[in-house]
Nucleic acid binder design. Structure first.
Length: 154
DNA sequence: GCCAACGTTGGC
DNA sequence: GCCAACGTTGGC
């Protein structure tokens, strides 16, 4: 059992968008960074905990709790010629990009980035490090417990 | 919209 | 394999 923070731009898929999808589940397509891809492909298991993070928006922060609901499989968008995620070097025989499915567990009151920064317990989180841009980052179990137990409000 | 930080690309 | 140029991310 591992824990992850996964960024989504609410203009693309917000927590409310996720809540409306069939099964409240979304294919986490479009990751085009090898480190983030490897986390999904090599380390994620069904049931892993996910903090759903809103990035690149008015108030960035954690918007909900979710879970990994599939193992990794080839990202369909890499094969779609008219998609912005199309990759001409990817083939069905040797796909380059993978994604898991993510299912909503519950929406929480937004835990802003500013709020996260207030807690010394969280100071080692990747998301709080200067220059961090990785869209998927692992969380320590203690960080997961602190955030879901102490900061998350229904 | 700015811009610092970082990842990727491609010429050599 | 180096590294300059370029593109992207994402907070502010």
């Amino acid at each position: 059992m591992r824990y992850w923070l996964m960024k989504s731009e609410p203009g693309d898929v917000s927590i409310d968008d996720l809540a409306k999808l069939p099964g409240q589940t979304v294919a986490w397509y479009g990751v085009r960074n090898y480190q983030a891809r490897n986390f999904m492909r090599d380390q994620m298991s069904v049931g892993d905990g996910v903090l759903f993070y809103h990035s690149n928006c008015t108030v960035p922060g954690i918007a909900g709790i979710a879970r990994v609901s599939s193992t990794a499989y080839p990202d369909a968008k890499q094969f779609e010629r008219n998609s912005k995620y199309f990759d001409p070097k990817a083939t069905h025989e040797t796909p380059r990009w993978f994604n898991v499915d993510v299912q909503l567990v519950k929406k929480v009151g937004l835990i802003s980035l500013a709020e996260l920064r207030k807690h010394p317990e969280l100071e080692r989180m990747r998301i709080l490090q200067r220059g961090n841009r990785l869209s998927i980052t692992p969380l320590d179990p203690a960080e997961w417990k602190f955030i879901t137990g102490k900061l998350a409000q229904d």
